[in-house]
Amino acid sequence: NLYFQGLKYMVPGARVTRGLDWKWRDQDGSPQGEGTVTGELHNGWIDVTWDAGGSNSYRMGAEGKFDLKLAP
């Protein structure tokens, strides 16, 4: 699974964008943008601060869902 392989790169400072299971509307800005991981992966959740200004926790394994992917 590509998403599980990418988890080791989901570290503080990593750049991310919305992924396969995104369901959080425009939390990442409008139009959709990139963000920066600000915390360690914990119980399948990870913290992100978006360039647009907001921050929140997103699923990276929790509930079998992956809200994020590494930015290109």
Rank of each mutant, 00 (worst) to 15 (best):
E40V: 13
Y58M: 03
G33N: 06
G35N: 02
P12R: 11
P31Q: 08
R15C: 04
K8L: 11
G61C: 05
S30T: 14
G6K: 11
T36C: 10
G64L: 07
F4D: 15
V16F: 03
F66C: 10
D26K: 06
L41K: 05
L2V: 13
P12N: 09
G53F: 03
G61L: 02
S55G: 08
R15L: 02
W45K: 02
R25A: 15
Q32G: 14
Y9Q: 09
E40Q: 12
Y9P: 06
R25L: 14
L20N: 13
G39P: 00
W45I: 03
T38A: 08
Q5V: 12
L2Y: 12
V48L: 00
W50P: 00
G6E: 15
W50H: 00
K23S: 10
K65Q: 07
Y58R: 00
D28T: 05
K65P: 01
F4Q: 14
W50S: 00
L68I: 09
Q5A: 13
H42A: 10
D26Q: 09
S30P: 09
G44C: 03
S57Y: 10
M10H: 03
G44Y: 02
V16C: 03
L68K: 00
Q5Y: 12
W45N: 00
Y3D: 15
F4V: 11
M10L: 13
L41C: 10
G53C: 07
Y9V: 08
G53N: 03
L7M: 13
G61D: 01
L70C: 13
R59F: 02
Y3G: 15
W45R: 03
W50C: 00
K8P: 10
L41D: 03
V37H: 02
H42Q: 11
G6T: 15
P12I: 14
P72C: 15
G19H: 05
L68V: 07
T49Q: 12
K69S: 12
T17K: 11
D21Y: 05
V16K: 01
T49C: 15
G19F: 06
I46A: 03
E40D: 10
M60I: 05
L20V: 13
A52H: 14
F66W: 12
N56M: 07
G64Q: 07
Q27A: 08
H42P: 02
T17D: 01
R59E: 01
E40S: 12
L2H: 15
K23E: 11
M60R: 00
D51F: 04
V16Y: 02
P12K: 13
N56G: 15
A52T: 11
T36M: 08
T17C: 15
W45M: 06
P12Y: 11
L41N: 06
G6Q: 15
D67I: 02
G64V: 04
L20Q: 14
G53K: 03
R18H: 04
P31K: 07
R25V: 11
N56C: 14
D26S: 09
G33I: 04
R18L: 09
S30N: 14
V16D: 01
A52G: 09
L2F: 11
Y58G: 01
W22M: 05
W45P: 00
T17E: 10
A14V: 11
K65E: 04
D51M: 03
L2W: 10
D51T: 02
F66R: 03
Q27N: 06
G19I: 07
M60T: 01
E40C: 15
W24T: 05
P72G: 13
H42F: 11
G54S: 09
Q5H: 14
M10K: 04
S30E: 11
G35D: 01
K69P: 00
L41G: 05
L70F: 15
M10A: 05
F66M: 07
Q5T: 12
D26V: 06
A62C: 08
V11C: 15
G44Q: 02
R18G: 03
R15Y: 02
W50Q: 00
T36P: 02
K65V: 04
W45Q: 01
L68H: 01
L20C: 15
D51E: 05
F66L: 05
K23N: 09
L41E: 06
Q32P: 15
R25D: 15
R59W: 02
A71C: 12
D47Y: 13
T36V: 10
Q32V: 08
R25F: 14
I46C: 05
V37M: 03
D67S: 02
A14H: 04
D28V: 05
Y9T: 08
G29A: 05
W50N: 00
G33P: 05
D47N: 13
G29K: 04
A14G: 03
W45L: 05
A71E: 07
G33Y: 05
T17A: 11
L7K: 08
R18A: 06
A71F: 07
W24S: 07
N43Q: 10
L41V: 09
L2S: 15
S57C: 15
Y9F: 12
P12L: 13
Y3M: 14
V37W: 01
F4G: 12
R59N: 01
T38E: 06
G33E: 06
D47G: 12
G61Q: 02
V37D: 01
R18M: 08
P31G: 08
G54V: 10
A14I: 09
G6I: 15
L7T: 08
L2G: 15
A14N: 05
E34C: 15
E34S: 13
Y3H: 15
I46S: 00
G35Q: 00
G54M: 10
F66N: 02
L70S: 05
N1H: 14
E63L: 08
G29F: 05
Y3N: 14
K8S: 11
G33F: 06
E40G: 11
G13Y: 06
M10N: 00
Y3K: 12
T17S: 10
P12D: 08
D28R: 03
R25W: 13
F4Y: 14
S30V: 14
I46G: 00
G33T: 12
V11Y: 09
D47V: 14
P31Y: 08
S57F: 09
V37A: 03
L70V: 09
F4S: 11
R15E: 00
Q32E: 10
Q5F: 12
F66H: 05
Q5K: 14
G33C: 12
T38G: 05
D26H: 08
S55E: 09
V11D: 03
N1A: 11
F4W: 15
